[in-house]
């Protein structure tokens, strides 16, 4: 009985794995991008041999950049998905809910201008909402008494 039970469990597990996992799921097909990678390899050889930066290349051979559809206005910092807002809460929400204090938290914790801008936007939105609500409140009070 015990053996039968073990066999059934093993077969069930094996069947479950066989349907859930496949080697093909892992493969990255670069067929569609092969030409693009080859073009970039040629460019790599060219800039390494001639010791060029993108600025040098744009002066020397601007048509090559256009022809290759090479992105020019990017920072290598953006290659990495690095910055995380404090406690994983979006910086905008920090500014929106905590106002200037939230802005300060984002500024000191992340030390990142983009995140601080988002917190500032949140702070400005919350200030705007507060002003509108206060005005509406006083309008309502004035209307109630006069």
């Amino acid at each position: 009985m015990k053996k039968l039970f073990l066999t059934v469990i093993t077969l069930l597990v094996a069947f479950n794995l066989a349907t859930a996992l496949s080697v093909e799921d892992f493969k990255i097909s670069t067929t569609d991008y092969e030409q693009a990678f080859e073009e970039l390899s040629t460019l790599e050889d060219y800039v390494v041999q001639n010791n060029l930066t993108l600025t040098d290349l744009s002066v020397k051979n601007l048509s090559l950049i256009t022809q290759l559809q090479l992105k020019t206005n990017y920072s290598v910092m953006n290659m990495f998905d690095l910055v995380e807002p404090p406690l994983g809460i979006p910086s905008f929400v920090w500014g929106l809910c905590c106002g200037v204090s939230g802005l300060a938290v984002v500024y000191f914790v992340t030390d990142d201008s983009e995140q601080t801008k988002k917190a500032l936007n949140g702070c400005l939105v919350s200030t705007g909402i507060s002003v509108v609500l206060t005005v509406l409140y006083y309008v309502w009070i004035i209307n109630a008494f006069y």
């Binding site: 073009e39 460019l43 800039v47 290759l68 559809q69 090479l70 992105k71 290598v76």
Partner: peptide, 8 residues
């Protein structure tokens, strides 16, 4: 879209 970046 075919836009490329290269970093060396």
């Amino acid at each position: 879209s075919g836009v490329k970046k290269l970093t060396i």
